[in-house]
């Protein structure tokens, strides 16, 4: 089982509106790709991402996302103005499907992401089918 990570540059993201950005992310997630964005999402965008995720959840394939925003700490007035002009917030956002990402945890000095290497969902389904057939 492979794991694909896609890194998306701040420039690419800056060209997209909020809605476009969210569907761009979710489209990848639903194809089991973990996405690393070169920007910190805005809280409102995070809420939109959760809303869109809830709309996309189906009982069989897609059960949701794990994500984590890392903000850059230094926030002076100058940086804030620069960010405002650039239209984005410095930092990173990691988003992935729950079937792949077990957990993203904040440790004192780093962020830790625990990914699954197999896709147990599929395994379980296959086994489930076999059992039914055997009855």
């Amino acid at each position: 089982m492979e794991i694909q990570l896609d890194f998306v540059s701040a420039e690419t993201l800056a060209r997209k509106g909020s809605a476009e950005k969210i569907s761009f992310i979710l489209d990848k997630i639903k194809r089991n790709i973990i996405v690393v964005l070169e920007e910190a999402l805005e809280p409102q965008e995070e809420a939109e991402l959760i809303e869109a995720t809830m709309r996309e959840i189906d009982t069989e394939e897609f059960h949701g996302i794990e994500f984590y925003r890392i903000d850059s700490r230094a926030k002076g007035l100058r940086e804030k103005i620069a960010e405002y002009i650039a239209g984005r917030r410095h930092g990173l956002t990691i988003v992935g499907p729950t079937r792949l990402i077990e957990a993203i945890k904040r440790e004192p000095d780093y962020i830790s992401m625990l990914a699954k290497v197999d896709v147990p969902e599929e395994e379980k389904r296959k086994r489930g089918r076999k059992k039914k057939g055997g009855k």
């Binding site: 959760i50 995720t53 809830m54 959840i57 009982t59 059960h63 949701g64 996302i65 794990e66 994500f67 729950t98």
Partner: peptide
Amino acid sequence: GIATQVDY
């Protein structure tokens, strides 16, 4: 409650 995932 707010959640990012719901697995039946």
